[in-house]
Design a binder for these strands. Structure first.
Length: 445
RNA sequence: GCGGGGAUGGCCCAGCUCGGUAAGGCGCUGGAUUGCUAAUCCAGUCCUCGAAAGAGGUCGGGGGUUCAAAUCCCCCUCCCCGCGCCA
């Protein structure tokens, strides 16, 4: 949510921002917000005046009674006030709800460096690293390859849980864990605190982070419980400190969220949609920072460097783009997308996203910094994917694929895989061997 | 799931039986004082409106009773302890 001060004092800034985002459809929302704000302040003043009257009269009644004198006349005078107060309260509440709803629909102010544009075509390339290698043989799609190697079973994933779920097996299960562990250690060395957060949040907590009316259809809800499975660890990490005051001396707080995420997004989006690229469930190491307002832009670059260094360590070519105004999410003031090279698609594709949300999330979550009893300020929040293992594994399976159908394990990951340097040797039985495992009577522990 | 106890300002806690408009402590900030850290004293410490003076709100949430609700009545949520179940 934006600062009400901006709405009152510089509405033209908000309007220009909507125009830059290409979201002129929302200009009426802004105009309504301005009107409701005026109405609200007017109504509130009137209400305060009535309440003041009531307080004065009840004070008089109390004094008369304390002095043992008759308060009947004053009580009759006071008796008509509650109804007037109640009806005005109802009206003021409604105006305030309208105002808040409108404010929640107005997106964050973009940073001046965000290029103007409508779609991802207009995103601005910032830099490239690494040379995509032209393969000397025909590459297999990662899903086909992984199935052939027996390290992923999409079919049984569908049988047991539906499309979008998979059984990772053998070396691929290890590779997933290796990425998580390498990623965690990588961020710990850079001063981040690892967090394994709750994987479900109640509605009230979730609503602090996102507009559930818009997101509910892509979220998994637990039946019969007030719980939603998390779509990214950004959500539990933000909710972690809502309504709190963070000690200014301890900022910035840098967290490495390690979690499994659940999203219902499906649908066909281009080539190789089968496979790990777009899943209902995947693992991720996420950078999340709470900081002072004046340091957020420096930290935004720092988080970006972390992700780039991570991909350099793996040896995967990438490019970085600044999202244009039309492609930037509602809560972000500026976003960089990390795009890894996918040789099968002969293209750079998104593997992570780095946003400075300035004080937009913090205002809604009511997360402030400062000293208890001292000056307080809204913190800035930033989040950046370090690695989403699903997409990163696709990049590894494609970029490091060898002619013999095996895949080279990036050097930095080998220590996390018992020294393994190649994936795919002496496997391929798992999908063929049918082992009729019996259930034990009370379930295995 | 059953039983019991709770939710009060940044934190701890009083007030609730008996309605009269949140006491006290800790922490923090500023000031005074003493040759230092300390101690002591004073003021401040949440949200909203307002240029300010000031006013209003706030006792887990929502209803109700009343001139007046932290306090009385009804409904709900969450937390803690014990029991049950159980990785």
């Amino acid at each position: 949510m934006l600062d009400m001060k901006v709405l009152r004092e510089q509405p033209e800034v908000i309007r220009a921002n909507l125009e830059k985002r290409g979201d002129t459809a929302r200009i009426p929302v802004l105009e309504n917000a301005m009107r409701w704000d005026r109405d609200w302040r007017e109504g509130q003043r009137e209400l305060d005046h009535l309440r003041h009257q009531r307080n004065v009269v009840t004070g008089e009644i109390r004094e008369l009674k304390a002095a043992g004198r008759d308060a009947g006349a004053k009580i009759r005078e006071a008796a008509e006030l509650p109804e007037r107060i109640r009806s005005l309260e109802a009206r003021v509440d409604e105006i305030q709800r309208n105002l808040r709803d409108a404010m929640l629909r107005i997106p964050n102010l973009l940073h001046e460096s965000v290029p103007k544009g409508a779609t991802e075509e207009d995103n601005l390339e910032v830099r490239r690293w690494g040379k995509p290698k032209a393969p000397a043989f025909e590459l297999k799609g990662h899903a086909e390859l992984a199935e052939a190697l027996g390290i992923a079973d999409f079919e049984r994933g569908r049988k047991a849980a539906g499309a979008g779920f998979v059984y990772l097996l053998g070396d691929l299960a290890r590779l997933d864990q290796a990425l998580l562990r390498f990623g965690t250690d990588f961020l710990v060395k850079r001063g981040f605190t690892p967090v394994f957060p709750p994987h479900a949040l109640r509605r009230s907590a979730y609503e602090g982070m996102v507009d559930l009316t818009a997101f509910e259809e892509v979220m998994y809800k637990v039946e019969g419980e007030d719980l939603f499975l998390i779509a990214t660890s950004e959500h539990p990490l933000g909710a972690m400190f809502m309504d709190e005051i963070l000690d200014a001396d301890r900022l910035p707080l840098k967290f490495a969220g390690v979690a499994t995420q659940f999203r219902k997004e499906i649908g066909a989006h281009g080539v190789d949609t089968k496979g790990l690229f777009r899943m209902h469930q995947f693992n991720k190491v996420e950078q999340f920072v709470f900081c002072r307002p004046e340091e957020s832009w420096r930290i935004h670059e720092e988080l970006q460097k972390n992700t780039e260094d991570f991909y350099k360590a793996l040896g995967i070519p990438f490019r970085v783009v600044t999202l244009c105004s039309g492609d930037t999410g509602k809560v972000a003031a500026k976003t960089y997308d990390m795009e890894a090279w996918f040789p099968r698609q002969n293209a750079y594709r998104e593997v992570g996203s780095n946003s400075n949300c300035t004080d937009y999330q913090a205002r809604r979550l009511n997360i402030r910094g400062g000293k208890a009893g001292g000056e307080k300020f809204l913190v800035h929040t930033l989040n950046n994917t370090l690695v989403a293992t699903s997409r990163c594994m696709v990049a590894i399976l494609e970029n490091f694929q060898r002619a013999d159908g095996t895949v080279t394990v990036p050097k930095v990951l080998r220590a996390y895989m018992g020294g393994l340097s190649k994936v795919g040797e002496k496997q391929g039985r798992a999908t063929k061997r049918k082992s009729p495992h019996r259930r034990t009577r009370r379930g295995e522990s």
